[in-house]
Design a protein around this nucleic acid. Structure first.
Lengths: 244, 244
DNA sequence: GTGCAGAAATTGGTTGGACCATTGGACCAC
DNA sequence: GTGGTCCAATGGTCCAACCAATTTCTGCAC
């Protein structure tokens, strides 16, 4: 017998109903990320539920990163929402040692290479222009500030993930990046980090623009390899003892 | 100056504090997944916060899938928690359709290949024996039940992820796999699925046992490719219209 | 008019208390 | 045993008020 043919009955789903209504509202008003949603009090009144229920629903959305709440200001949409969204919350048992750091780099290596290849296959001309622009900005920042271009660097990579046509790349690598940063800016410092990988950004871009998936993948792998080397060298220099 | 050395002061973070305390409680009591947490009323009293605040905190955990609430019964732990968890809520626009499924397959392709390669490099003899065992079980199940070996199949892959030495592979792919199943068992049915990919399991194992990272990666890619083909064919057969 | 300090309104965060709906066990009649 | 009934425990919802951060308005000094 198929278990799915007899799903458990849903007796109460107030807050789910609130979220559904909210999705409808966002659609109807064509709200964009960054815009403010109605007040909790207004929502409660309009939807004929208690403010408490509204808050539980919004808390869930906040936990999923869909909205941001600012006390005294309001609740703001962070990403586009739709009624057929699928949530896949994933919690990682992150460590703070060097081993964990290298583990995030292994994930990033796999995804970065694939994203670059897919991007070379599927990016539109607009996408490529956007990537080129981010590259220019990054190189400019790199020269004027001599190496301190982590923010612009990141934006360049994000543009590639977006152009890959698969939003999961950006989401997963962003999580890795956060884990990465927790460790990296602190014990290692930013110093001359990034010099070695600099030139590969342009070569990746060139392979993408040339519609060469395998080339893009190869260049991305080279870039990640230099980053990993930098990390290993930095960690060795600091005599980190956690690499068991 | 390092921004991390001067974190913004948290004047209100009651519910975060509640969750932190709860992590401590789970650790102290060595609670296992499936066990029941204290009641909301008790938590509120013990932590000297209002029950509403406790509820907001638990709502967040529930949204992240860490905990399950059953009215009239209690709140139950679903997964192991720790204080250095990293939450990575992934959101797919497009829900239950074929596009989302293919997007998860792209992620899996990237990670599966990397995991197989790392496994070939780093697996211990014990790991390899374990993988061989899972492979035998799977092949046995495949022959006796003629294709219905999804459970054993999955265990084989998990053994590889574990032997890669990086737990992130298993965690991330597991999330993808869950979505995969939700779609695959229901609209597509299990039918003759898996026949095409069957032989690659053994070839992957052979490359791993031979310590051949590139070979293992190549075989893993072939396996994923056949799975993707199967999915496309199955979806086409069902005349799914969501592949825009 | 301009600029700025302080008041007032707005908005999310928290509290405490009440009641409802579901669950699961205890108890009872048969 | 079987089936039902009752009851206490527990999560779900509601209300009304107040706190804290933010934004907006107001009015005064210049």
């Amino acid at each position: 017998m198929d278990q799915n043919s007899l799903p458990p009955i849903q007796t109460t789903a107030r807050d789910d109903a609130v979220l559904k209504a909210l999705v409808g509202f966002v659609r109807a008003e064509a709200l964009q990320p960054g815009e403010r949603l109605p007040t909790e009090r207004i929502l409660a009144e309009r939807l004929k539920v208690s403010r408490n229920t509204v808050r539980e629903a919004l808390t869930r959305w906040e936990g999923l990163g869909l909205v941001e709440r600012r006390q005294g200001s309001g609740t703001y949409l962070k990403v586009a929402v739709s009624h057929d969204m699928l949530h896949m919350p994933l919690t990682l048992a992150g460590g703070n040692d060097f081993t964990s750091l290298m583990q995030t780099m292994e994930i990033r290596r796999a995804l970065e290479a694939e994203a670059a290849a897919l991007c070379a296959e599927r990016a539109s001309q607009t996408d490529i222009a956007e990537i080129a622009h981010k590259l220019d900005v990054m190189e400019q920042a790199f020269r004027t500030r001599d190496g301190m271009s982590s923010e612009e660097d990141w934006e360049f990579h994000q543009a590639i993930y977006r152009a890959s046509g698969n939003p999961l790349f950006e989401q997963i690598i962003a999580a890795m990046y956060e884990l990465f940063h927790r460790f990296w800016e602190h014990p290692l410092g930013v110093r001359d980090f990034g010099h070695a990988s600099f030139s590969y950004h342009r070569t990746i871009y060139e392979r993408i623009a040339a519609r060469d998936p395998q080339g893009a993948r190869a260049e991305a792998l080279k870039l990640i390899a230099t980053v990993e080397d930098d990390l290993k060298r930095g960690a060795a220099k600091l005599k980190l003892s956690s690499q068991t």
